[in-house]
Each structure stands twice: as C-alpha cells, then as structure tokens.
C-alpha cells in the first residue's frame, strides 16, 4: 500500500518550504485523517509558513484567521449585512408582503457575510484554513472553536447547521504565550516546530536567497545560531536570518567582517539591549561563524 500524499515533501519544497523531519508525516496524517494540526514553537520558526506552503503545494485556497484579544464569532464566522438588510427594508417601504416574508428574506444566505471559518466550510475545493496565534484569542473563543474543529460544522440560528461538504485542512499555530486547553489539544494533531538545525537553516537561506554566495550564507547561519545561544530578549527567527541575508546581498557585502554587515545587524536583532549585547560579542560571534 502506498502512503497517502507520497509527493508531499517535494511539493512543499517546490513551494519554497523545506519541511523539518517529521513535519511531512504529520501533515500527511492531518490530510488523511481530516484532523486539525496544532503547531507550537518559538516565534519566527516558520509555523505560519506551513499553511502557506501547504496551500500552494496542494493548489488549495488559503484562508487565514488572525487571532487577537477580543476576537469573537462575528469576526471569525459570519455577520449579517445590516446595511443591505436596512436598504432592503427601506426599498420595500412596507408595501409588499408581510413582516414574516420580509424577515425570511433578509435573514437568508444573500445577506450573510462569510468570515474565514464559514468561508472554509463552504469552500470548494477544500481550503487550507490557518488559525494563526490561537494563544492570543480568549478562552471563550477557543471553546467556540471546539465544535468547528471536531465536526466541521457551525450552527447559525436563522439558517440552521452548515456542514462542510469537503472539510478544510486546519492549521492552528501558537507561540505558547498562554497554555491552550486540553479539550482543544485533544481535537488536534500536534507538532512542535523548533528553530532549524544549522544544515536546515543553510538550506533554507540558499532556497530563499539564491543570489547569496554559499560561503557567506553558511557564515550568516553560523553567526545566527551562535547569537541564539546568547541570553537575548528575542531570539532571531528564520525570517530575520533571511532578511539579514537579503540586506547583505543588497549592500553588496561579501564577508561578515565588512563594516556594512555590522551596520545592517538591525535586520536580525530588534531590541536595543539585544543589539548592544550582540555588538559587544561581535568578535566572538564572527569567530564562531568562521567569517
């Protein structure tokens, strides 16, 4: 028996995403079992990118729900188009039909504004739904998601229950700023995405910044890996490694001991205290990078 989605790894690579070991297996599992996937890990490790790459690899639409404090059903699921309903009632002017008929009309699918969750249920072909930074949303919203994630259905009082014909592939991400409930975890598959190893990060930088010389790319990655071992307030992410590599290419830098490299370090380090620490340790970081 062939495993499902045998080409997934190469499809992800074509979508410019180098999946770490284990992720492809978990994605295959999520796709075949139809289970949501919860991805945790440090900020900037590439969690959000998984959904983008997966949608591109499978040729499915990507829907994104960015979570934040105060996010509620009306922003996530659906909302009635009040302006349109009002216009409809005003245009009618109470002349035709009864209130019951008008009510039935204005609370129909025509007046419904789909938000990402509902869009994902109705999408054909099935969408890749990214629920980003779920830890930023409140516990109430997390509880609301339980029905959606378990059954892929939502209940709208005026319209009834809407069930997905083709369940979306759901990817939830969390930076662990808040511990998620066990109920949510139980409904999801789990993957912890850590910062990549040196070899993986070199490969990522080569893939994302092809203009960069291989030797300089290797030095940049070693430098970043050493910087991640410092007691920094915010560790440099993979995206920041790429940003720094792009900055060095734009500045025409050939070696890390070039003064422009030191000047462009703000592409990598984003806090003043971290910046002064990295500048203090600049020489040792350069030595560890092999220049």
């Amino acid at each position: 028996m062939h495993p499902p989605y045998p080409e997934l790894e190469s499809q992800l690579t074509r979508a410019a995403y180098l999946a770490p070991p284990g992720l492809v297996t978990v994605l295959r599992l999520a796709l075949t079992l139809g289970k949501p996937l919860l991805v945790e890990g440090p900020a900037g490790a590439g969690k959000t990118e998984i959904a983008r790459a997966l949608s591109e690899a499978l040729g499915r639409p990507l829907l994104r729900l960015q979570c934040y404090e105060g996010l509620d059903e009306s922003k996530a699921l659906y909302e009635w188009n009040y302006h349109k309903q009002l216009l409809r009632l005003q245009a009618d002017g109470g002349r035709n039909g009864s209130w019951h008929e008008a009510q039935q009309e204005i609370f129909s699918a025509e007046y419904l504004l789909d938000r990402p969750l509902l869009k994902a249920l109705r999408s054909s072909p099935p969408a890749v739904l990214l629920i980003d930074e779920i830890d930023k949303a409140e516990e109430e919203f997390e509880a609301f998601l339980l029905e959606f994630l378990a059954e892929f259905q939502v209940s709208i009082p005026e319209l009834g229950t809407i069930r997905a014909q083709q369940p979306p592939t759901v990817i939830l991400t969390s930076n662990r700023s808040r511990e998620l409930s066990d109920a949510l975890r139980r409904r999801c598959l789990y993957f912890f995405l850590d910062f990549p190893t040196r070899e993986q990060e070199e490969a990522i930088v080569r893939l994302k910044v092809p203009q960069l010389e291989a030797k300089l790319g290797a030095h940049i990655v070693r430098f970043v890996q050493s910087a991640r071992r410092l007691p920094l307030r915010k560790l440099p992410s993979v995206a920041e490694t790429i940003a720094w590599a792009e900055a060095l290419v734009a500045l025409g830098v050939k070696e890390l001991n070039d003064p422009h490299a030191k000047a462009s370090i703000t592409a990598l380090i984003k806090h003043e205290e971290d910046l002064s620490l990295v500048q203090q340790r600049w020489t040792s970081l350069l030595n560890s990078s092999g220049r």
Binding site: P4, P21, L29, C188, L189, F191
Partner: peptide, 27 residues
Amino acid sequence: DAFRGVQLLGVERFILKETLAACLVKT
C-alpha cells in the same frame, strides 16, 4: 487516531514515531 494513523502511514520506525507523537503527545 493513532491506530488509524499507523494503519495509513505504516510502521517504518521514524514515521511510526512521528505518527504516534502527533496523535498521543500534545505538549
């Protein structure tokens, strides 16, 4: 989920490990 995953993806050791981890270990 773990049983279905193993049935679908097979028992090659690394895949088995990641399948079981994704289904059974959530922190």
